[in-house]
Design a protein around this nucleic acid. Structure first.
Lengths: 103, 103
DNA sequence: TAAAATTATATATAAAAACATATCATTTTT
DNA sequence: AAAAATGATATGTTTTTATATATAATTTTA
């Protein structure tokens, strides 16, 4: 299985989880059998593009074809908007009402 | 045929032309029969994702799955780097050796 | 730890892609 | 205008997806 398809399938699964859908629910929303969705996610079938698109749409995602030279820029954007990775830098309030609180 | 697949197929064809490949040459480079490439480009088959990826790779493009909310940002980037649309704004040289030339 | 829900696997069948190959129609080049 | 290249179409065959359905295995929840 190619790296690209692995990436796409992983993104799909992540998107499904993020929406809180089970395979059954995704099945109901797409009309694609749960058993087949399982195979698709596991990469055990060479899915047709129409199936991919139907699933993508239900998961609020979209399939794109982009020039390779733009890949770094895009991954950067996607990464920065990712919900799985979050900003945990410490910020200091400009002032506090409760000056004795520890960090 | 869905809008998304139409877009992708159009991008593929454009990318092929941009590389100066005929369907025959793309066929030779991908191992996919020319007759089938013709069908794919015309949207008369529901192409499998592996075929799409093989073709995309040869054409220096890549398939991506992105959150819908990022679509505007991405289309903007892709558009600004597009080769089909080019910058034809008039620029003025800082100086000329030939001062009597008309605009 | 039971029960329930979810995911993976199995089987049989139908539908469609993908293939090899050939050829026709159209466009481009010489 | 003739030759060459390109793209579309046709046919028969093979391979594989996709479907329906059931059930087993695993994970989550009560």
């Amino acid at each position: 299985m190619s790296y690209v398809i692995e990436e796409i399938l992983e993104s799909l699964r992540e998107a499904r989880i993020r929406k809180g859908y089970s395979q059954r629910e995704l099945s109901a929303r797409t009309g694609i059998p749960q058993s087949h969705i399982s195979k698709i996610e596991s990469g055990s079938v060479d899915v047709r593009v129409s199936s991919l698109i139907v699933i993508a749409r239900v998961l609020d995602t979209e399939l794109f074809l982009i020039p390779k030279k733009l890949v770094p820029a895009l991954t950067s954007i996607v990464r920065s908007h990712s919900d799985t990775e979050y900003d945990n830098r410490q910020i200091s309030p400009a002032y506090t009402l409760d000056e004795h609180l520890d960090d």
